[in-house]
Design a protein around this nucleic acid. Structure first.
Lengths: 199, 199
DNA sequence: CGGCAGTATGAATAATTGCTCACATCGCCT
DNA sequence: AGGCGATGTGAGCAATTATTCATACTGCCG
């Protein structure tokens, strides 16, 4: 099955349509889960006709793949933004905290979307996509941690890129799902977990 | 919507039917993901008629809830079995390794099923169910770690029960999804992460 | 055996859903 | 202006799917 976009938008209008469709898809999954994710609902919420959706995405899975890609790009952007604000003289704990905060931002807000993407990533043939994403994220993290080689064990960039966000999410969920949610503690515990893992 | 079982099986035959249905549901999701999970397919794979399925489960979501319950029970059973084989004189690392191995057993084998359950747990009103499960698992883990109070930080049993499996899965996935999968390393890394978090 | 609750069946139905297509509109280019 | 590719439309089809129901079989108990 073809999973690449059917055609690329050439005019600004078309790009807006594509964005609206992806935005709608993300919103529906985040709000109501994979069970409510269907192409008609996405088109309606996006305010475009179902035909327009199929102008750009050859089928539902292709839309999902595009959504995965969009989410990955969002995570990379957040990560880069966080990295840009880090004081070059900061110590390891401070750097890790900044990374944890960036990761939490994307994971905790939309639990349903995050778990949905996990599941779809396992089902769809998107290994290449994930590999690229992990390479980029890994390089970024590796660059940030390069100053602390004495304090941390050997960690492959790709593995770090895969493990650290998962680690953060694991700990975050544990504390954020309590009643009431304890987000500050979540961050502290996630930092603890990452530092514990790195050393 | 009613999510509790419609009726309880009273004869052995009926219990076998229920089991076959749940087993089939688990198999389909583990093999083909949530997208392929539908009641007709489950009934067919279970070797029973669709009517029989609806004798015991009032709707699809109720079947999913029962599946979640079954999976939780399986995890508790595995955990208890692992706990039973632990040498009372073992050190912390050994105990953790045994727990990690137990957790890996359930998570890694069926990635699709595990991620599907994560997602459905976030969508369905099963907080009570999860609470019960975490209480039981937490008590078990807390009991196992009670001997090491000097070596570990304070960890609430409920939080430990939620964090530790997630931690294990996070690290496991990072290594097991490589090509080729490095399951031994996965176990070692997971142990490292858990110990890092606990201390 | 007779009877009754428990269990199993599967065709049928109503609703949903992925997707197509014939057509309309838009906007850039000459 | 006008023409042509790019974009947008939405009714509707074919397939899938959740669920029901009238009917039939099974096994326990007196």
């Amino acid at each position: 099955m073809v999973l690449s976009p059917r055609k690329l938008p050439k005019q600004g209008r078309a790009r807006a349509t594509c964005d609206a469709i992806l935005e709608a898809a993300a919103h529906i999954i985040a709000r109501s889960g994979l069970a409510a994710f269907n192409t008609n609902a996405v088109a309606e919420r996006a305010g475009v006709s179902i035909g327009s959706l199929y102008q750009y995405f050859p089928n539902k899975d292709a839309l999902m793949v595009a959504l995965i890609q969009r989410q990955q790009q969002g995570q990379l952007d957040t990560l880069m933004a966080a990295a840009a604000t880090i004081d070059p003289a900061a110590d390891l704990a401070t750097v890790v905290r900044a990374l944890v905060r960036a990761a939490m931002q994307h994971h905790h807000t939309d639990d349903l979307l995050a778990t949905a993407i996990d599941h779809e990533e396992a089902r769809l043939p998107v290994d290449d996509l994930i590999g690229q994403y992990l390479d980029q994220g890994g390089m970024l993290v590796a660059a940030l941690l390069a100053n602390f080689q004495g304090q941390i064990g050997l960690v492959e960039p790709q593995v770090a890129a895969r493990t650290l966000p998962a680690l953060v999410r694991a700990v975050t969920d544990a504390w954020a799902n309590l009643t009431p949610p304890q987000l500050d503690t979540a961050e502290n515990e996630a930092v603890k977990a990452v530092l514990g893992y790195l050393r």
